[in-house]
Amino acid sequence: MTAEAHGHHEEHHSSTGLDNRKLGMWAFLGSETMFFGSLILVMLINKHNTLGGPGQEVLDLVLTSFTTFVLLTSSLAMVLSLAAFRNGSLLWGRIWLGMVMLMGLIFLGGQVYEFTEFVTHKDLTPSTNLFGASFYTLVGFHGAHVAIGVLWLGTVLAYSWRGRFQPGMDMWGIELVGLYWHFVDLVWVAIFTLIYLI
């Protein structure tokens, strides 16, 4: 991943013309669909399994709609960042990348607030009932993915000051984190629709 190494990779023979790392990321994301698919299924099974305790009604649709909007918009910023880097504008690439991180952090902040609120005021913990357990597991794992994404974006941003992503260089480092970020976004669309809206 260093500047010295990057020139070499272009010599790699590739049967499909696709970059190995991108293909690997697609395979990983394929695996992740089953990961989140299983979690979402468990959540749907237990959606009304409240044992008379707090259930779906505790979900704050207004707050989460806002953070959902922020997260979805971050995908746009991600696209703009890659486009800027490709056009040779390091400045705008970095700005948009920073925006993606910021929006990811806002989303995470909303989630932390939501979890704290549920535990302290709504008496909903993972051991209260299976609605709670499934909710914290699913949304928590998604949040962990967002958090890892923010850290990853930060690393990419840092590397833009270490000689990477200069005009004319390959951009796979940004493309990879972009693929991951869009996927995590897409999963949230499913979660928000199935758990919050329906």
Partner: peptide, 22 residues
């Protein structure tokens, strides 16, 4: 890659049952 995530989730839930009283 498509089969293992199911047991991963199963084991996560099992460990939650064992560790955090779900």
């Amino acid at each position: 890659i498509f089969a293992f995530p199911a047991i991963t989730i199963g084991l996560v839930l099992l460990l939650f049952d064992r560790y955090i009283e779900t």
